[in-house]
């Protein structure tokens, strides 16, 4: 197990290892690392192969299309809840200060406000604002049904009324444990209502490819391979020179070019894949 970047040593059967020295953006040079342990990192053969871990939740539509959702974990949800708590506290404080001026009528109205804010704040925001309370909106979260449809009254009411259960015995203990143990990070209210808190898709800025001449594809590529080549070109700015050269070098053999030219060749191919734009 070698977590440190070590000098690359081409191994025909294993493929390239991690980067050569000097590929970090800072120009940080490192020596040969001390291995953590002498035992080689081999997957134990006796274990059953489990599906790869991923933070995705696939919903298959009747047309056979997989919708990809990204369930949100405990930390952003806790922060969103904290924001909502503060907003609610602020609303209540203002309401009591304002309505306190009007004697008994004011206190009655304040009680109504208290009820509304306590029990309906989340529900109203979730149903009327595309599954987002202000805290969730700030953190980029969204509540959906399990099948990816927008959350409705019944589900939202259920999941928010069951906060009472999640609260037990103190400070959302049950909710925290359920959220940490569930593969899609659901608390008990989510389980009962069949809802899912996901990261909202944000509009990505249009990626810019380096301006090079397009070059024809030397071999047929599958969809994920095309995607990888495009990503390689799009993420040029985030990668160091050395690392780019190393990554491109992996494909120098199949491209039948010297390693030094592989990167330019890959960029040209990516340009070709991108098409005229």
């Amino acid at each position: 197990m070698e977590w440190r970047q070590s000098t690359i040593r081409p191994e025909p059967d294993r493929g390239g290892c991690l980067a050569a020295g000097g590929w970090l953006a800072s120009g940080f040079q490192c020596e040969h690392g001390r291995p953590m342990s002498a035992s080689p990192a081999q997957p134990s053969d006796g274990t059953v192969r489990q599906p790869p871990l991923d933070t995705r939740y696939l919903v298959e539509t009747p047309e056979g299309i997989d919708l990809v959702l990204h369930p949100a974990g405990l930390v952003p949800r806790a922060l969103a809840f904290a924001v909502d708590l503060m907003v609610r506290g602020l609303i209540l404080l203002l309401a009591f200060l304002l309505l306190g001026q009007f004697g008994e009528l004011g206190m009655g109205l304040a009680s109504l406000t208290f009820f509304l804010v306590t029990w309906w704040y989340m529900v109203l925001f979730e149903v009327l604002n595309q599954g987002r309370s202000p805290g969730k909106q700030l953190l980029g979260l969204q509540v959906l049904h399990d099948d990816g449809t927008p959350v409705g009254w019944a589900a939202s009411l259920t999941r928010n009324l069951l906060r009472v259960v999640d609260l037990l015995p103190f400070g959302y203990s049950l909710g925290i444990l359920s959220c940490l143990a569930h593969p899609a990070f659901k608390r008990l209210g989510d389980l009962a209502a069949g809802t899912l808190v996901v990261y909202r898709e944000r509009a990505q800025p249009r990626p810019s490819l380096p301006e090079v001449a397009a070059q024809p594809l030397p071999f047929a590529l599958q969809a994920d391979e095309r995607r990888a080549l495009l990503a390689f070109a799009e993420r040029q700015a985030g990668l160091s020179t050395g690392r780019r050269r190393e990554l491109a070098g992996i494909l120098a053999g199949p491209l039948q070019v010297p390693e030094a030219q592989a990167e330019a060749r890959l960029l040209g191919i990516a340009r070709e894949l991108m098409g005229p734009s």
């Binding site: 493929g15 991690l18 970090l24 990888a228 990503a231 390689f232 993420r235 990668l239 160091s240 992996i250």
Partner: peptide
């Protein structure tokens, strides 16, 4: 992010 591990995996697979 820094080292594009996902690309390395994809490229290795393509080469294989």
């Amino acid at each position: 992010h820094l080292e594009a591990w996902d690309l390395e995996v994809a490229f290795q697979r393509l080469r294989r």
